[in-house]
Amino acid sequence: MKKTAILIEKLIRLANGDVLPASSLKGDWFEQMQEDGILLATAHGSRKSLRASDGMSLRQYVASQFDIYDLEQTRRAFSDNDASRASLVAATGDSKFLSRRTFTGFLVNSYQPITAVLNGQEIIIHATEGCFMFIADYQHFTIPQDVVVVGVENAENFRYAALQKYLFAQYGRVLFVSRYPQNQNKDLIKWLQFIPNQYVHFGDLDLAGIAIYESEYYHHLGNKSSLFIPDDFEQRISNGNTERYNVQLPQYGKMKIEDKRVQPLLDSIHLHHKGYDQEGYIKKKNKE
């Protein structure tokens, strides 16, 4: 049987002396417990109920047979999204009993020193080229309010942030955050919702790039967010990729946008039937 919160709750009630309808205790576990005398049946006409022969015996039985060593702690683990693997082992003997992401948080990068606060301690974010900082305890991570957060879709653009600083001079101080790996994206959104800083999304100039911004960021952040649309977007798109446009058109061709500031970019993409990859904005080092 699959270990679920409902199953654990029923076992706790039985261990505490409750009598439950047999119809609510279906499955091989409960059948085995009846066969082994851990659960006793009582008939009420056509209906049957089950109770534990002894609460402590039931607890010892599920520990030895089903590797659930602490019913109450296991119940708490189901309701605690932050339950550690150590606590799961203590309760169930299995660190994989529930799916938990050990690494929560997101990557940050900056080409200029930014003083931030993490758990009440000042830290300096100024990564050496080829090395980034991972903020795990993002719930206790803050940056100065004048720092603009720039979210980067693609890994190469995130890595070479310093080679694109000419694009972001208008914003003053910027902190780059990575959209990847994608399973960290909800952590990033939660943090962006918590802080007052402006968010600018930097992605591909194509239909999918607009859809990502609209659904993953603008939908949650509203006008605190904006899509980065470079001044030369028209010229870049006119020299872009037609195949990319054709591939994305069936899925995004009739896309409705919420942020009307994006309309000129969307119109240009449809006019030229092309899209442009953001990697094209990375300058060569000797031209920085």
Rank of each mutant, 00 (worst) to 15 (best):
Y199K: 11
R51E: 08
R261G: 13
R244F: 06
M33C: 03
E156D: 13
R159L: 12
V174S: 08
V147Y: 08
A90L: 15
V200R: 12
L58S: 04
L14D: 05
F30R: 03
L192N: 08
S87E: 13
P113N: 00
K96P: 06
C131Q: 13
D277C: 13
F132Y: 05
L221Q: 00
K260Y: 08
E156S: 14
E72K: 14
Y218N: 04
P21T: 10
K10H: 07
Y160H: 10
R236Y: 01
M33I: 02
K26T: 12
S226C: 07
Y217R: 06
K287N: 07
I237G: 05
I68M: 08
L207R: 02
Q251I: 12
Y218V: 05
E156A: 12
L271V: 11
Q73A: 14
M56D: 13
V19Q: 10
R76D: 15
Q182E: 12
I229W: 03
Y138W: 14
F141W: 14
H272E: 11
Y160M: 10
G120R: 02
N16Y: 10
G37T: 07
R100Q: 12
F106Y: 11
S215Q: 15
Y171N: 02
I125E: 07
E9H: 06
G45E: 05
V148T: 14
K3Q: 11
K283D: 03
K10A: 00
V117P: 00
V62I: 13
P181W: 02
A208S: 13
A5E: 05
R76M: 10
I125R: 10
E288D: 10
K285N: 11
A41E: 13
I6A: 13
Y245I: 04
Q121M: 11
D231L: 09
R101G: 09
Y166I: 08
T128H: 07
F134I: 14
T102I: 15
A77D: 14
R100H: 12
G275W: 03
P181M: 01
L167I: 06
D67V: 03
T102Q: 15
S225D: 03
I8A: 01
F78Y: 00
Q251R: 15
Q60L: 12
D80C: 09
Q182V: 07
G222F: 02
Q198G: 09
I124F: 10
N183A: 15
N183C: 12
D54S: 14
T4Q: 00
S23I: 03
D187R: 03
S23Y: 00
D277R: 11
K165I: 07
S24V: 06
Y276N: 06
E153I: 03
A15Y: 06
